[in-house]
Design a protein around this nucleic acid. Structure first.
Length: 413
RNA sequence: GUGGCCGUAGUUCAAUGGUAGAGCCCCAGAUUGUGAUUCUGGUUGUUGCGGGUUCGAGUCCCGUCGGUCACCCCA
């Protein structure tokens, strides 16, 4: 039996093959995500991995169903594995908004699903850091989130040589759109065309734009001008004040595909152009109202950062830290008559907080030593008799003899 | 959903259409008065699966499943 297509198995280090997914690497990423978000004052939340299908079609239309991992459950409900976290967050926030002081700063690390054939950096499931701020319309919130995004990547040891946040805004494009003779109803189609500019044939894009009353040249000129609006200048000023100015630039090519974005939008890109976008987000001021059926109306914004592209990027840049078991002590048993005394010692060490291993069954000395080295044990502990042991630091090769009762404290050094 | 490439032992890879192999890993034993040693032996395959062509298919053809990459879509 194999796993389902597009789903991953995560093995502990050492991973069996070079392209296996490492749970230790995953944990390194999650720990960094969680640690950075908490230092920014964000609180962790979670929701159900399955939601009613309608939660997703409500804001994106029925076309999205083709991309969803959806099915009918035994109660004849139309449900879907969650493809993104934002609708769940909007639902949760709308339901209990009065119970929290504003702004609400929350993050989550959900596993998300989509039903499509896999390709580079895109599987049928992935984990994503989601950080959102609800209830603050000021640009300071946008800047705070972008700073979190940048610091999260910096804490993974990526530098301004590795990535840049490309900042844009729907407001800027809206002004551009309204300064023309185009019809307001076409604005969503217009955004779609901009979103596809870099992967669509320019001739096709030009034709589509012409139908809405624009020329490709006109659009390209606007993108190339890269002139920051007051809104974007304020965000960049905020980021610069934190000393993170090297990590951000205006780029009107970014507009994001989703219909619900309403203001500033951004994506973090690998500077060498080898990978897909590392992260993306923006402001969605009307989504909470939409999901709550009009009961609650709160401005909101957020970003998502997936683990698949990130893991590939870290491996590519040699930024994966040493991973694997970090054993404190290996208690070897060379004399089986001392097994019970050794077990007693193992118990003491474990109770003292030392990660401790020992041979479950009689084993040859060379095998035991080899195992201790493979497990990267810091200490090798051997009982000489029922009252005395010698401990060896496997890093420095220093050895000393200590009374049995002092072993645990000797290992603390 | 569409298309390209790929599929041999746990793993990395061999095998002109002619008896399916090697290194590594793993396991056992021997040696070693403790630093990854050395020696000996051993397990493992319906060649992804199902058809077809052929005297004979890992090899050629078709289908299917899986992997991978691109398209569609982008959360």
């Amino acid at each position: 039996m194999k796993g389902l297509p597009g789903f991953r198995d995560f093995y502990p280090e050492p991973i069996p093959t070079a392209d296996s997914w490492s749970l230790d690497l995953r944990r390194h990423i999650f720990d960094t995500w969680r640690g950075t978000a908490e230092r920014y004052g964000f609180r962790e939340y979670d929701g159900p991995p399955i939601e009613e299908l309608e939660l997703y079609t409500k804001k994106s239309g029925d076309e999205i169903v083709g991309q969803l991992y959806n099915f009918t459950d035994k109660g004849s409900r139309n449900v879907s594995l969650r493809p993104e976290m934002t609708p769940t967050l909007a639902r949760m926030a709308a339901a209990h908004t009065r119970n929290y002081k504003k702004p609400i700063k929350w993050f989550s690390i959900p596993q998300l699903f989509r039903y499509e054939r896999q390709q580079k950096g895109r599987l049928r499931e992935h984990f994503q850091l989601n950080a959102d701020i609800i209830g603050e319309e000021n640009l300071a919130a946008d800047a705070e989130l972008i700073a979190l995004l940048i610091d999260t990547l910096r804490n993974l040891k990526l530098t301004s040589d590795d990535f840049v946040v490309r900042l844009s805004s729907r407001h800027a494009w809206q002004d551009f759109f309204e300064n023309s003779s185009a019809h307001e109803k076409d604005v969503c189609d217009f955004y779609q065309i901009i979103d596809k500019l870099d992967r669509e044939d320019p001739i096709v894009s030009g034709e589509k734009l012409a139908k809405l009353g624009f020329s490709l040249e006109q659009v390209n000129d606007f993108i190339e001008s890269g002139q920051a609006t007051d809104e974007l200048a304020a965000i960049i000023g905020n980021i610069e004040a934190r000393g993170l100015g090297d990590f951000i630039k205006v780029d009107y090519q970014i507009i994001r595909g989703l219909a619900y974005y309403t203001g500033p939008v951004y994506e973090a890109f690998d500077k060498r152009g080898k990978f897909r976008a590392i992260a993306g987000g923006g402001r969605y001021d009307h989504l909470v109202k939409l999901v709550s059926g009009g009961k609650t109306d709160l401005p909101a914004l957020g970003f998502g950062m997936g683990d698949v592209v990130l893991a590939e990027l870290l491996k590519d840049r040699g930024l994966v830290p040493p991973l694997g078991q970090a054993l404190d002590a290996f208690v070897q048993i060379t004399d089986e008559s001392l097994r019970n005394a050794s077990l007693s010692l193992v118990q003491q060490l474990r109770q003292a907080g030392q990660a401790t291993e020992y041979p479950l069954l009689r084993a040859k000395p060379d095998k035991q030593l080899k195992r201790a080295l493979e497990l990267k044990a810091k200490w090798l502990v051997t009982l000489d008799n029922a009252n005395q042991a010698h401990i060896k630091n496997l890093g420095t090769r220093e050895e000393q003899t200590v009374p049995l009762v002092d072993v645990a404290s000797a290992l603390q050094d």
